[in-house]
Simulated scan of single mutants.
Amino acid sequence: MRTLYLFSSAAPPVFDVARVIEDAQADGWDVCLGLTPTAARWLSQSVEGLAALTGHPVRWDYKLPGEPDAWPKADAILVAPATFNTVNQWALGITDKFVVGVVAEGIGKRIPTAVMPCVNAAYVQHPQFERSVETLRGAGVTVLYGDGGFVPNEPGHGNPAAYPWRLALDAVRGILD
Score class of each variant (00 low, 15 high):
Leu4Thr: 03
Ala11Lys: 07
Pro155His: 04
Asp177Leu: 04
Val99Ala: 11
Val133Ala: 15
Ile175Pro: 10
Ala24Arg: 02
Ser46Glu: 13
His56Lys: 13
Ala39Gln: 07
Gln128Ile: 14
Phe150Ala: 13
Gln25Pro: 06
Thr38Trp: 12
Asn153Leu: 15
Leu6Pro: 01
Ala26Met: 03
Ala39Cys: 04
Thr113Gly: 12
Gly34Leu: 08
Ala39Lys: 08
Gly174Asn: 04
Trp29Leu: 00
Gly93Ala: 13
Leu64Met: 15
Leu167Arg: 15
Pro164Asp: 15
Gln25Met: 05
Arg19Pro: 02
Ile21Arg: 00
Asp75Asn: 10
Ser9Cys: 15
Ile21Cys: 04
Met116Phe: 07
Tyr62Gly: 01
Pro127Cys: 14
Met1Cys: 04
Ile175His: 09
Arg137Ile: 06
Asp177Gln: 15
Tyr145Leu: 05
Leu144Thr: 00
Asp27Pro: 00
Asn153Pro: 06
Asp61Gly: 15
Gly28Ile: 12
Asp170Ile: 01
Gln89Glu: 12
Ala139Lys: 14
Arg41Tyr: 09
Ala139Met: 11
Val99Ile: 09
Thr54His: 01
Phe98His: 07
Gly66Lys: 09
Phe150Gln: 13
Val143Trp: 05
Val47Gly: 04
Val102Lys: 06
Ala171Gly: 01
Asn159Cys: 01
Ala114Thr: 14
Tyr123Ser: 15
Trp60Leu: 01
Val133Phe: 11
Thr113Cys: 11
Asn85Trp: 08
Pro127Glu: 09
Trp60Ile: 02
His157Phe: 14
Trp42Phe: 09
Phe15Met: 15
Ile21Thr: 05
Thr36His: 03
Thr83Ile: 08
Arg41His: 10
Val20Arg: 05
Asn153Gly: 09
Asp147Thr: 07
Ala11Phe: 08
Phe129Arg: 05
Arg2His: 03
Phe129Glu: 07
Ala76Asn: 11
Ala82Pro: 02
Ala74Asn: 13
Ser44Phe: 04
His56Met: 09
Leu136Thr: 12
Thr135Tyr: 13
Arg166Val: 14
Glu154Leu: 11
Val79Asn: 02
Val124Phe: 00
Tyr5Lys: 02
Thr86Ser: 06
Val124Ile: 03
Phe15Glu: 14
Pro152Gly: 07
Trp60Arg: 02
Ala168Leu: 04
Ala161His: 09
Ala91Phe: 05
Asn120Ala: 04
Val17Phe: 06
Val115Pro: 15
